[in-house]
């Protein structure tokens, strides 16, 4: 601001005629009005769309009563749903951390036919509606699905069972770690890895001693994104799992059923748990992001 005024003052006597100075003052006044108007609109917008819903959930939770919500959450089926979500997220995080890292290395560092296709494919889950993901897997693995005979042969039940939930979660979470690491690998370049090679390091040593330490914040970021996305997945898990209480119900489908059954304590309680978790993850994420930028 100060700099701004200064540069204007320094130039004014020589280049700007008096009439233009009046125009300048008018412009400044308009800018003040525009600033106030834009700020007002933006604050109102964020308040209505973003802040108010958060506050509403919190106040509703207190209306229902924290004790009642907690009691509802301690019911066996609620605990089961919560545990199911955590297990799914833990597996998705592990699988994605490994395969996301490998996939990113393959996409950025390897040269092979179909590489661009692979990269596009890995991005695709971001563009597809969860319900349609569910439908696609249903058509692949459901009653009349292509691969159903294969899994039937081995006696593996996928639909409305744990494997179905897992596949849905893996699908929706696939891009998060991978994309993050692709981005970091492209930033970093190959010269450190080359340096390690000339110093006598094997590919294995290069990965553990150079590549992995360099992508660690990207990986952490990706893992947190995966965790948050897996915990929150609803549509695909609902279609493939069927939300059978005590069998394939997850935290999100539990909320859905609780609303249908008008058990508001359980619904709000579980929603609050998920909302709180995502806020915690978000804060950790922004910390990871800052660390990544700093390093």
């Amino acid at each position: 601001m100060l700099e701004h005024a200064h540069s204007r003052a320094a130039v004014a006597p020589t280049t700007i005629p008096a009439s233009a100075l009046h125009a300048d003052a008018r412009t400044a006044a308009w800018e003040g009005i525009a600033r106030a108007a834009i700020s007002g609109v933006v604050l109102l917008y964020l308040a209505t769309v973003l802040v108010a819903p958060l506050v509403a959930l919190a106040s509703e939770l207190t209306r229902v009563g924290l004790r009642a919500a907690l009691n509802a959450l301690l019911q066996p089926n609620a605990l089961f749903a919560l545990r199911m979500s955590l297990v799914l997220a833990a597996i998705a995080v592990t699988v994605n951390a490994v395969l996301g890292t490998l996939g990113a290395l393959v996409i950025v560092r390897h040269r092979f036919i179909g590489r661009a296709w692979l990269s596009a494919l890995a991005d695709l889950p971001l563009a597809i509606s969860p319900v349609m993901i569910g439908l696609s897997f249903l058509l692949l693995l459901g009653r009349e699905g292509w691969l159903t005979p294969l899994f039937d042969h081995f006696g593996i039940k996928i639909m409305f069972a744990f494997p179905g939930l897992l596949i849905a979660t893996l699908f929706v979470a696939l891009p998060y770690t991978l994309r993050e690491i692709v981005y970091v690998l492209e930033e970093i370049g190959t010269s450190e890895e080359e340096a390690a090679a000339t110093l006598g390091a094997s590919p294995w040593q290069i990965f553990w001693r150079v590549t992995l330490p360099n992508i660690r914040f990207g990986l952490a970021y990706g893992v947190l994104m995966t965790l948050s996305r897996s915990l929150g997945e609803f549509g695909a898990v609902l279609v493939l799992g069927g939300s059978i209480s005590g069998q394939t119900q997850t935290a999100t489908t539990f909320i859905h059923d609780a609303i249908e059954e008008r058990q508001s304590a359980g619904a709000y309680g579980m929603a609050a748990v998920l909302a709180f978790t995502s806020v915690a993850l978000l804060l950790t994420l922004s910390w990871a992001k800052r660390r990544r930028q700093a390093s």
Binding site: S191, E192, E194, A195, A196, A197, T198, G200, A201, S202, R209, V210, P213
Partner: peptide, 15 residues
């Protein structure tokens, strides 16, 4: 890895 060559990179490429 086995050439026994020391290489100094343009932008150092320090770890």
């Amino acid at each position: 890895r086995v050439r026994g060559v020391g290489f100094v990179f343009q932008h150092y490429a320090l770890f």
